[in-house]
Write a protein that binds this DNA or RNA. Structure first.
Length: 664
DNA sequence: ATAAAAGTGGTT
DNA sequence: AACCACTTTTAT
């Protein structure tokens, strides 16, 4: 079918075509994707020296692209999350023993039940008698063909015709690439997927983000290969969206956008000026400490779990003491994020008088005072600085997606200096952060944390003024013997009291709430699996469309109320042929007009919901026995309610939902 | 006491 | 997407 007999070298450096390990002089590395190839196995090896220097591999040059354009199918883009979901369901199955779970995971990961389309490549490999398909081969970079490093899922444009109007939408084309390979490809001016040639939208070019589902899947797969007990950590990392982080946001706060002003109690028992990781003993609610990869919906929750205390400022610190944490939220254009290291910009230099919080114009030079001096001090003493990344950072591929803030571990500030910023008018304080955490970063599939790494090359240092580098030995450093980062000098003694923390009763309530929000509980399954996609509540009289989407019967009917199946098309007295109305499924482009005429309740789904609700009621009754539930009597009048009233959203929502859907 | 701070939800 | 009103926490 195609003359596709060219293969690169595998990760071990063995040519996948001739199966030999080419000597260095016969190995040629692609200028785009840095994959090594065996020269004598190439169909058209470069002929001149300059051609050799700028050589692009067959995949990157696109000369002999063996893969047909496969149209737009939901491909690998969704594999990551599907696979993770499948792994979780195995984990959650209590009827299985540990070994059975491991076995099931192995089966799953060996390629069965994981998309079959797009697998020309796989077929070729197997037919050639190459290694059996394992999960990692599903996660190869489409440029370098090696295990994905910092995977990005390529999105491409496709045209969608709805009601005679064409929409340009973007969708994963099913091809994943290492961030590095993708950026190189883009840097060469390409604007199409290297594999399927579909056009890549500008948003993908300017803002590629690492696909954390794939990272999780790779990590889970590795864990599962070892069949050891590290899964819980990884699972936490995947599912932390389900925690009731907003538990302490008051109704009043939510109403008027005052959330930042209503920051509640702190869940961890560390002082505000605590440096470095937060250990389990300071986390009486969960007893696990602050974990790398945890994420929150807002600065409030981020503050409550101790990652970063100020809820507006990007820097936490004191000029005479040091800086404890920073947030990367793209507030300053000069920031430059490379994941394991980044260049951070100081604060200040802007006129923010009155309420001009949105002013981004630099009006004067930044100086090493206040927060900037705090950062410089942390640099001087080599303190660990907690780093939080926000979705708001639109330029960083490492930023989390979905309006979140994520704790990424501790970094050290190795150097700081000043240089005129991007706006070209005033000097900015600059800080070189390098990661030094014992846990792997959220975007790597590594199992281990950081090892000391050489400082990156920072070109702008040539033009820098006021350069400051640490002279003394760092307080937080890598212990070769213990193979981990630790305090080499005692951490600075806190100057502040631990305050505004939960009392024991509140802790208990929160612990309960977290337990309830655990994705394996009935409650969470109710919420997740049986939510009506229109009213977002657990379904009442569930109906399932031909396109397999679920809604409350009433919600669906009211959506199309007043739309007749057949429309008369008439002008004046003349009658034209009547036309069928198109009724688009609220979740997909499928026309469900016929279905809507007489939707039948899905009895099976309804029964499952009934069962789950009953179980949940029993659970609730039990927990009511154990401890007095806080008055979750909603309906507070919005004028004079106590400012810091505690409200457990999750509980309130769930019980309200159940009551409603209980009605016939 | 004062002003800065990489926020938040709602509205143009 | 830009603006706005509403606010708290923090450092000094």
């Amino acid at each position: 079918m195609t003359p596709a007999t060219q293969y690169p070298c595998d990760p071990e450096g063995v040519c996948m075509r001739c199966k030999s390990m080419p000597p260095p002089e016969e190995s040629l590395t692609c200028g785009t994707c840095v994959t090594p190839w065996h020269v004598s196995c190439l169909l058209s090896p470069p002929e001149t020296l300059s051609a050799t220097l700028q050589w692009l591999c067959p995949d990157c040059s696109g000369e002999t692209n063996p893969l047909p354009v496969s149209g737009v199918a939901a491909g690998y883009g969704s594999v990551g999350s599907d696979l993770v979901a499948a792994i979780h369901s195995i984990e959650a199955d209590e009827t299985l023993s540990a070994e059975e779970k491991a076995k099931k995971k192995q089966q799953l990961l060996s390629g069965k039940g994981v998309v079959d389309e797009d697998d020309e490549e796989e077929k070729k490999k197997t037919s050639k008698g190459k290694k059996p398909i394992d999960v990692l081969s599903h996660f190869e970079c489409s440029f370098c063909m090696q295990s994905l490093q910092k995977p990005v899922s390529v999105r491409v444009l496709f045209a969608l015709a709805l009601m005679l109007v064409w929409f340009l939408e973007s969708t994963p084309c099913g091809h994943n690439a290492c961030l590095k390979c993708f950026l190189k490809w883009m840097g060469q001016g390409h604007r199409s997927c290297g594999t399927c040639r579909s056009v890549i939208p500008e948003s993908m070019v300017t803002n590629p983000r690492i696909n954390l589902s794939i990272v999780s899947a790779i990590r889970l797969a590795r864990v599962s290969e070892k069949a050891d007990a590290r899964t819980s950590k990884v699972v936490h990392y995947v599912d932390n969206e389900d925690r009731p982080d907003k538990a302490f946001t008051t109704e009043r706060a939510k109403k008027t956008g005052n959330a930042n002003a209503s920051s509640g109690k702190i869940f961890v028992t560390i002082p505000r000026d605590h440096f470095g990781p937060i250990p389990a003993e300071n986390d009486p609610v969960r007893n696990q400490g602050l974990l790398v990869g945890e994420s929150w919906k807002g600065r409030l929750a981020c503050r409550q779990w101790g990652a970063h205390f100020p809820h507006v400022s990007g820097i936490a610190g004191q000029a005479s003491y040091g800086a404890q944490s920073v947030v990367l939220a793209g507030g300053y254009d000069d920031d430059e994020d490379h994941g394991e290291w980044f260049l951070y910009t100081g604060s200040g230099g802007r006129i923010l008088k009155g309420n001009k919080r949105t002013n981004t114009v630099q009006a004067f030079d930044q100086v090493f005072l206040n927060f900037n001096e705090a950062l410089r001090l942390s640099c001087k003493l080599g303190y660990p600085v907690r780093v939080v990344r926000s979705t708001k950072d639109k330029r960083s591929p490492y930023a989390p997606q979905g309006g979140l803030l994520r704790y990424d571990g501790v970094y050290r500030i190795e150097k700081c200096w000043r240089i005129v910023g991007i706006q070209g008018t005033h000097k900015m304080c600059r800080f070189l952060f390098v990661r030094c955490d014992n846990e792997p970063a959220p975007w790597t599939s590594d199992e281990h944390g950081d090892r000391p790494r050489p400082l990156p090359n920072v070109p702008e240092l040539n033009m820098a003024t006021d350069l400051f580098e640490r002279k003394e030995s760092p307080s937080w450093d890598f212990d070769e013997g213990e193979d981990r980062w630790r305090w080499m000098k005692p951490p600075p003694a806190s100057k502040k009291a631990v305050k505004n923390v939960l009392d024991p009763e509140e802790r208990k309530l929160l612990r309960e709430a977290i337990k309830s929000a655990n994705p394996n509980t009935m409650r969470a399954r109710l919420l997740k699996e049986f939510k009506c996609q229109i009213c977002q509540k657990v379904m009442t009289n569930p109906v399932t469309t031909p396109c397999a989407h679920n809604f409350c019967k009433a919600c669906l009917e009211s959506k199309f109320a007043g739309t007749a199946l057949v429309r008369e098309r008439g002008s004046g007295g003349r009658k034209l042929r009547s036309q069928k109305s198109v009724m688009k499924c609220p979740c997909c482009p499928t026309d469900i007009a016929e279905f809507v005429q007489n939707p039948q309740v899905n009895r099976e789904v309804a029964e499952v919901i009934e069962k789950l609700k009953k179980q949940e009621e029993e659970e609730n009754a039990k927990s009511l026995d154990e401890g007095q539930c806080s008055g979750t009597s909603h309906e507070e009048e919005d004028d004079e309610q106590p400012k810091k009233r505690i409200k457990l959203d999750t509980d309130a929502e769930v019980s309200a939902t159940v009551v409603e859907s209980d009605m016939k």
